[in-house]
Design a protein around this nucleic acid. Structure first.
Lengths: 181, 181
DNA sequence: CTTGAAAGCTCTGTAAG
DNA sequence: CTTACAGAGCTTTCAAG
C-alpha cells in the first residue's frame, strides 16, 4: 500500500486509453482484494520486479482505473447492522440532482438511476429500522418522490468491490450468440 | 497504509465488544475514505500521536471492524461498464447455498437474501449486456430459480463502502417515535 | 495517553544493461 | 523490462513520564 499520492503525477483523471495487458489485470486483481501489499510482494505475485510494478501502479492510479484505496469497514460491528435497498419512483424525469442532497448522509452508500419498473435505486446502511424510516420520511418530503419500495437485507452472503478478471468468465457462455451455428 | 498484517496479532475475528469511542469513530471515518494515510497524518487529523493511532488501528483490525484495505477499481475503465441489480425468486426457501456457487464469478459483487417481493438480490458488474445474459442463463439453469427481474443501471451517482459516522444523522429525525408527545 | 529514540523496512529515484 | 545502489521517509517497537 504505497503512498503514491505524494509520488508526483497529478491525479487528474487523464484518459490513458491504452488497453490493459495481462500484467495490469493481475496487478489490479491483487490490489482489489488486498491493497496492503508491498511492491516487492506484489511483484512476486505477478512476476515483475518491484520498480516495474510501482511504475504500473502509478500509471493505473493516474489513469483513474484505481480510484483510491480504502479501509473496508464491517457494517454490523461498526454500528450499522441494518442494510436495505430502496426503489424510488419519481414524478417525471431528471430528478436525480434533487436526490443528490442525500449524499451528505453517511448512511447512503449508493445512488443509481435504473431501467425497469422503478426510477432510482438506493443502498442504505444504518443503525436500525428507525433510521431507515427517517430516510423514507426525508424521501417523501421531496415533491419528486412518488413512491418507494424497500428491500430489507436479511443476510449478506457476498459483498465486495469491483474485481479485475484475468478472463471474462461470463463472456464465454453458451448463449444464443451464434444462432446459425 | 500500514502493513499491519505482519505486525503480529492474529487476524482472528475476535469479538472485541468494547464500544467505539469518539477517536475510534474518527479514525474509521478517515480510513474508510482514504486508507493511504500515514499514521503521522492520521494522528494529526484525529488529534492523537502516531503510536496511539497505530495501536488503535491495530485493535480495530484485530476486532474485525476493519475487514481489510482494498484498491477501489473504476468499473468502466477496467473493462466493466455494465452494472445491474437482479432480483431472484426461488422455489421454496433456504436455497442460498446453491447460489453461493456464483461467488466464483468475479462479475458478481453482492449476494443478499431480502424481505420483500423477491427472495435474493444480486449485484452484477460485467463487460456487456451479453455477459448479463450469460449470468441469467446460468441462474435459470438452477432448479431453484423460478424467476428474475433485472434492473440495469443507467447512471451511478454515488457508490462507496460503509462509512463511519461521527453522529448518526438519520437517528435524529422527526419520525413518529413519540406519538403521545 | 504522551514524547523520544533507535532499528528495520519500504518506497523512490537513478543508473546501467 | 531487469538488477543494483542510495537517500529519504515511514513504520514499529521500546522506554520513560
Amino acid at each position: 500500500m504505497p503512498n503514491d499520492a505524494k509520488t508526483e503525477e497529478v491525479r487528474s483523471h487523464a484518459a490513458d486509453t491504452r488497453p490493459l495487458d495481462a500484467f495490469d489485470r493481475r496487478i489490479l486483481g491483487e490490489l482489489a482484494v488486498d491493497a496492503s501489499l508491498s511492491y516487492a510482494e506484489l511483484g512476486r505475485l505477478v512476476g515483475l520486479s518491484a520498480p516495474a510494478v510501482h511504475e504500473r501502479v502509478k500509471r493505473l492510479r493516474a489513469s483513474g482505473r484505481v480510484r483510491g484505496t480504502v479501509a473496508v469497514l464491517d457494517g454490523p460491528s461498526t454500528g450499522k447492522p441494518f442494510l436495505a435497498f430502496v426503489h424510488v419512483d419519481t414524478t417525471g424525469w431528471g430528478k436525480t440532482h434533487e436526490l443528490m442532497a442525500l449524499t451528505e448522509l453517511p448512511e447512503l452508500e449508493e445512488i443509481h438511476s435504473v431501467a425497469g419498473d422503478t426510477c432510482m435505486l438506493l443502498k442504505v446502511r444504518c443503525k436500525s429500522s428507525r433510521a431507515l424510516e427517517g430516510l423514507l420520511a426525508r424521501l417523501y418530503a421531496m415533491p419528486c418522490v412518488k413512491a418507494t419500495r424497500s428491500y430489507v437485507v436479511l443476510s449478506t452472503y457476498l459483498e465486495r468491490t469491483p474485481q479485475a478478471d484475468i478472463t471474462d468468465a461470463l463472456e464465454n457462455d453458451r448463449s444464443m450468440a451464434h444462432p446459425g451455428q
